[in-house]
Every structure is written in C-alpha cells, then in structure tokens.
Design a protein around this nucleic acid. Structure first.
Length: 257
DNA sequence: ATGGCAGTGCCTCACTGA
C-alpha cells in the first residue's frame, strides 16, 4: 500500500499532473492540499478520478486552502475539519482507508512571528494536536499527512542561518511538531533517509529548484502499528520538473499491507 | 534592504503563499 501527500497549489492547474502521476506511480492513497477551488469545481472532476479507478472526497474552499483524499480503496467515516474547533478555513479531511485512519491536513503558514496569522497558526496547531491525540486512541493504524508548514530540524532547510528561528522554523512551531511526535508518531521519511538537503518544497523564484534551495515541510507521521510495516518513504522530485509545476512535490510512503 | 514567481479574483492590482 502506497500513501502520498502533495500540495498541488491549485487543482485546476495541476489536475493533469495529478492524474498522470497516480497512473504512473500506482499510488493507492493521495492526500492533496491547496486545491483552491469551490464545491462545484470539485464535483466536476470526480469522474476524472473515477475513470482511472480512484475515489475522490474533498473539503473545499474557494480561492484559498481546500484539501482532498484520493483513494483506490473505499473511504469510510469521512470527517471534515477539526471537530470542536470553529475554523472557516478548510484545511483538514480524514477517512478510514483499508484499515488505516488517514488525516490529511494543510497546516497554517503563519506569515511571520509578529503576524496575527502566527497566533492563528498556534491556536490551529493546539486544536490539531488535541484532535490527532483523540484519533490515535481510536485508531491503531494512523497516518497524519500533509503540508505541515514546519521544517522539523535545521537540516530540513537549505540555509539554516537565514531560516532558524523564523517562520516555519521557530521554537513554538517545532514544539508543536514534537507534540505530534510525542503522541507516538514517527516522521516516516527520516526512518529511511537521514541526509541533509532533502526537500519537498522549492520557491518558484531565483531558480530555487535547480539550485536545491528548498525546505522539507511536507510530512507523513505514522503510528507504531504502521511503523512496523513501513518499508520505504521517498520524495518524488519528478513532478517538480514538469511544465507549470506545483512548488511542492509528492512524498510517498510504502507499507507492506 | 528588497524583490524575485505563481495562483486567484473584487482581475492591469491586491492578496496569499513559504
């Protein structure tokens, strides 16, 4: 079973990339973030996924945010948003797929440490941590995947000197990431790759991809029950090389189930 | 010190992103 995460930065623009990537990689489950389109636009593309053998469920918002789960297997107990947290922004969708609880999330960016958006980020993170904590008690096999907008360690940035302490790399953001780890979750990518400069996002500007000036901010955290069956986790840089790419590229986890 | 690029919509500018 292969499970992936991909921030597509507009599904309208990236639909063909996604459809072709699914067929090429034979991925079973794909969590998408930043669809940037409303319910009507999402309804219109359900058949495009159906035609190649995938279900498509979504939590839509016009212009900003928006998340979805694409799966070969049926999705059950689909839950939109973080329960008991009033949030107008559509950032979370969860479902049980082939016995695995999959939570797909587009974490808040935060803009800057002195921005009101950063306070929103911290509150959002608190609520997510509570939610995921509840879910880990209910589901043995669980994955929290998505665009975390957090680089967990200094070596997850191309230039620690300029990033350390700043947005995506600050102490409270990393503390929140560690709280997720302390729920019993494991950063699956680091189980298989401990090298520096392994990135999932590169700025569109300054030839950042070509120069490998990026960040590792897209993650799949897995519960112990999945850790024992995880066989690989890779960053697939191929889609970042296509015409009009997303600035993020997929991260793919392989499980022997 | 600043902006670089890309996407969306109140669309020739503003806002957001990371």
């Amino acid at each position: 079973m292969k499970i992936a995460t991909w921030n597509v930065n507009s599904l309208k623009v990236r639909l063909q990339h996604v459809l072709e990537w699914l067929q090429q990689t034979d991925c079973d489950v794909l969590g998408l973030q930043e669809l940037k389109q409303d319910n009507a636009a999402n309804e219109k593309i359900i058949d495009e996924f159906k035609n190649i053998g995938y279900h498509f469920v979504y939590n839509a918002q016009k212009t900003y945010n928006g998340v979805a789960l694409v799966s070969k297997y049926p999705l059950t107990d689909v839950v939109l948003d973080i329960p008991d947290y009033a949030d107008e922004q559509k950032r979370v969708i969860a479902a049980t797929i082939n016995g695995v609880r999959v939570i797909c999330a587009y974490f808040v960016n935060g803009e800057a440490l002195d921005s009101p958006k950063f306070q929103y980020k911290l509150t959002w993170l608190e609520n997510l941590i509570r939610y995921v904590g509840d879910e880990t008690k209910k589901h043995d096999k669980l994955v929290l995947l998505g665009d975390y907008n957090i680089a967990p360690q200094a070596n997850d940035t191309h230039d620690p000197e300029s990033w350390e302490g700043n947005i995506l790399c600050s102490v409270p953001e990393r503390a929140a990431f560690n709280q997720l780890i302390n729920l019993g979750l494991t950063d699956s990518f680091r189980m298989f790759n401990q090298e520096d400069k392994q990135f999932s996002w590169w700025d569109y500007r300054n030839f950042a991809f070509r120069r490998n000036m990026g960040l590792r901010i897209d993650h799949l955290l897995i519960s112990d029950a999945l850790k024992t069956v995880a066989t690989d986790c890779i960053i697939d840089k191929a889609p970042r090389k296509l015409e009009r790419p997303s600035d993020h590229t997929p991260v793919v986890l392989t499980l022997s189930i």
